[in-house]
């Protein structure tokens, strides 16, 4: 863009040539990102550049929140404090019961020689913002690889599963919500034990249980919890509540549910540490010599 020449002369390559150049660059990036996921390093670098801006942009909403907190009345605080104390008492009793059950369970598992259930560390992260992109359901949280976060870790709140960490930058990370189209979670009906997989439906904030037979034992109001067979989510976390069942649409029932966790209204979430390494899949038989090779394929 040399402007020193008089305007009647062309300067540099023409507009269309420049557009073609940048469009080509963008297309290369798009293909590299969508097909091969090559560009995570560039993304991470740009995210560090963006981080101060994001922090600055979050100031107005934090200020508003602070101002709101300032005008909370003494009575409201007192009420909340009382309620929290009551809840803590109840939770404490529950925690003691769980500890006893855990010990019991551990001993029973030793008796039947089952592997112990590993404990998972929790890390509390603050949600920075929901992404503007209307095509995805993602939030950005303020913990990144410098805090020890890794791709694939499960994200929960006090009500159930929120989603999964899908991209980690040095200072922030992206969490794909359950309702994102790319997210699926293996679940189990807490009432009947029927196993299924939830798929995010994207925009409506709903989940769908796909490939369930028409006569599956599922009712409205059933709670689905994680089955834990994926090795990402620990078993037993609430995922979704069934709200709508249509049994005569196709050869499969169409079952819709809403997420159990407050997927779109929270500010703090807990990120679980990854579970133990999974055995390599597909599983090979323990003694390959005992079985003919072809049979295992």
């Amino acid at each position: 863009m040399q402007a020193s020449a008089p305007p009647m002369f062309k300067r540099g390559p023409s507009l269309l040539v420049r557009l073609a150049f940048f469009a080509l660059m963008s297309l290369v990036l798009l293909v590299a990102d969508a097909r091969f996921r090559y560009l995570e390093n560039i993304r991470a670098t740009l995210s560090i550049v963006l981080f101060p801006l994001q922090e600055a942009a979050a100031v107005p909403s934090t200020m508003l929140g602070r101002a709101g907190e300032f005008f909370v009345t003494h009575a409201a605080l007192y009420r909340e404090n009382e309620q929290l104390k009551r809840e803590r008492l109840l939770n404490g009793a529950e925690a003691q019961r769980i500890r006893a059950l855990e010990m019991d369970n551990e001993q029973l598992r030793k008796l039947v020689e089952a592997a112990p259930i590993p404990e998972r560390q929790r890390m509390v992260a603050e949600m920075l913002y929901e992404t503007r992109d209307p095509f995805t359901r993602k939030v950005v949280v303020d913990r990144g690889s410098v805090h020890g976060l890794g791709v694939g870790q499960a994200v929960v709140d006090h009500l159930g599963v929120v989603g999964q960490v899908t991209r980690v930058f040095p200072l922030v990370s992206e969490v794909s919500l359950l309702t994102d189209k790319t997210q699926s979670v293996p679940v189990q009906n807490a009432r009947s034990g029927v196993r299924s997989v939830t798929f995010g439906l994207g925009l409506g904030g709903m989940l769908e249980l796909k490939f369930m037979p028409v006569n599956a034992d599922v009712r409205n109001g059933d709670l689905f919890v994680t089955s834990g067979i994926d090795g990402i989510y620990p078993p037993g976390l609430p995922v979704a509540v069934v709200t709508n069942i249509e049994r005569n649409v196709s050869s499969f029932a169409r079952i819709l549910c809403v997420p159990a966790a407050g997927v779109s209204n929270y500010t703090r979430v807990a990120i679980l540490s990854p579970g133990p390494p999974r055995p390599a899949s597909p599983l090979v038989p323990a003694s390959p010599s005992a079985q003919p090779r072809e049979a295992s394929r």
Partner: peptide, 10 residues
């Protein structure tokens, strides 16, 4: 925005 790399750019 966690969108595809190059989407907004293009």
């Amino acid at each position: 925005d966690a969108s595809l790399f190059g989407q907004h750019a293009l």
